[in-house]
Design a protein around this nucleic acid. Structure first.
Lengths: 337, 337
DNA sequence: GTGAAAGCGCTAACAA
DNA sequence: TTGTTAGCGCTTTCAC
């Protein structure tokens, strides 16, 4: 890499002259500016990012800590974060916590050494279960702002971007009740994290309020053979005529299982799941989905963080919680279309 | 963040003493070392990463440029890269090229300003179509090594990690021929990128060598309604009894379409697709898959890059191409199990 | 055993 | 208009 020093030497001027010329300072003479810029272009000069970061005490880099990048929703949020950040001149350093508290702490501590200006993260499952928030507080105390999305720690004061999980399943369940479904089941592979709980509560509320049935819930484990579990569930509860799935695979598997048992979808069973458009194609008929607008969640999170980073007055204490509403997209696995 | 300066001041010693003490230099007296370390611990001192990078002229950071993070395979590779990099003390800065040549160039140029020590990337679709490789050469000329994976530019001299795409479909097709399938179709949504072409060639070779049919290929566009296209394809070619799918969704959709038309899988039609275990569950019976070992590809790429970065002699010119072999995992969508 | 000083690449206050 | 200098946080050589 070419440095200012080398340019200065070659042009027989001082380093600061070169620096000012390249930064369009008014101080420098017209033709000096021209000479400098020409040589800089010739040598493809770009300012050294590391030196700039050291000097200005900010890196224009955001640390992103994701629990699981193979989760389609989280990957999509990451996509949204990356796009917004890039557009606003920020890079992102990605760490994967693998749902582990320890890795989450490590990532936070590691990047808090000057590598990033702030964090965007989704709380790891283990951290949620153990309700551990000290590492977040510690990081914020160091002066590094955090924005949490999707799974958040309510007891940490910071900006947040969340989904209306409770409302989403409440409405989805009601929409099945409106189809006169009388045995609506709730299937979840994420019952131990905050959003999974909220989704279950939304379902429960709708059932207890309006339906003539008791709540009927199947909780899956990540290590389980989900196809098998869902099949047994259908076998045990022969009268299921509606399914709300809290995660992206369960909905698809539920449809395929129902079809496999000779049921018609949506005539005999309606299914709604949290999933993306691309996954919804994995069943015929297509799964009716609750869209979470993952990209927008990511973009919002990045926006909140960058705005906080670029605020002149860092005394701001009022933290924002932004709710990105889900949309029910009626495909062919439900009657109402 | 606490700095050496502050520690030095508080201890009434010089900055260099503190630095040496913390780095276990033999020069410093025992109890000075002790005092320094205690205070450092108390204040939770960590060396400023940016200052270190500037001083040592290396960042311990890898730039990763991915065409599409919503692609499950690519996300999994990223996972593998992240894990290996983290274990070896490197961070990763992720950029998404969105299959665009321009964004790929931007990312490369942007991070070549001292932000990273080298790159791991998968060539964008547009770059492959236009066969543009100058930006890669330019980057390497700047002294930043590149490791390419999956989709690579053969005319660029650098380390590469690839999949045995040709062999994979050749063998998969042969495995269907061995099941006495007589009308094996090839479905691809990725026919414009290098790996898509290789996969088609492997299929063609097997068909032309051993089968009694002509090659039968369906090429899908990303914007198409894939369910519809595949349905029409099955309608037009009623005698299809085998399918090789070059991408992860097409295989699932093919099975579901066949079932929907009343065909039995695998009795009437066998299906094999490039997909991951989790996606294979999206059909009943489960899709027989060609596993690409994405995580391992990522880990290998990171290993190659880090080894090159840490070689004392940077004169090394012999570049390695590592082939990670696919595995055919027989699930229930084929006869042979 | 400890400290002063230089230098990584850059910006900016101040001097000329 | 241009140059000198200090300093961001750190390591390391060389003096003391």
């Amino acid at each position: 890499m070419v440095t200012l020093k080398q340019l200065a030497k070659e042009l027989n001027v001082s380093i600061s002259t070169v620096s000012k010329a390249l930064n369009n300072s008014e101080e420098i003479g017209e033709d000096t500016v021209k000479r400098v810029k020409e040589l800089a272009k010739l040598y493809n000069y770009t300012p050294n990012k590391v030196a700039l970061s050291l000097k200005q005490n900010k890196t224009k880099t955001i640390g992103v800590i994701i629990p699981d990048i193979l989760n389609h929703f989280l990957a999509k949020v990451l996509f949204g974060i990356e796009r917004e950040a890039t557009q606003r001149g920020y890079n992102i350093i990605t760490c994967i916590s693998n749902e582990s508290l320890e890795k989450e702490e490590e990532a936070l501590d590691l990047l808090a050494n000057g590598s990033v200006d702030g964090f965007i993260l989704c709380v790891a499952e283990e951290s949620q279960i153990k309700n551990e928030i000290n590492h977040f507080k510690r990081t914020i105390a160091k002066g590094l702002p955090i924005v949490m999305f999707d799974r958040v720690a309510h007891d940490v004061l910071c900006d947040k971007v969340i989904v209306d999980d409770f409302d989403a399943t409440y409405k989805a369940t009601n929409s099945l009740i409106a189809e006169h479904r009388k045995n609506i089941a709730f299937i979840s592979r994420i019952d131990d994290i905050s959003v999974g709980k909220l989704r279950e509560r939304g379902y429960n509320k709708a059932i207890l309020e309006k339906a003539i049935q008791e709540p009927l819930v199947l909780k899956l484990n990540k290590k389980d053979d989900n196809q098998q579990k869902i099949k047994s569930f259908f076998k045990k509860h022969k009268n299921i005529d509606g399914v709300i799935a809290a995660d992206s695979s369960s909905g698809i598997i539920a449809i395929n299982t129902a079809l496999n048992k000779g049921l018609k979808v949506p005539k005999d069973v309606s299914v709604i799941g949290f999933a993306s458009k691309s996954v919804s194609e994995h069943s015929i008929p297509r799964l009716t989905i609750i869209r979470q607008h993952a990209k927008q969640i990511g973009a919002n999170a990045a926006d909140l963080l960058i705005r906080r980073l670029e605020k002149k007055y860092d005394e701001e204490i009022d933290f924002k919680t932004k709710i990105v509403k889900t949309t029910l997209v009626n495909n062919k696995s439900t009657l109402k279309q």
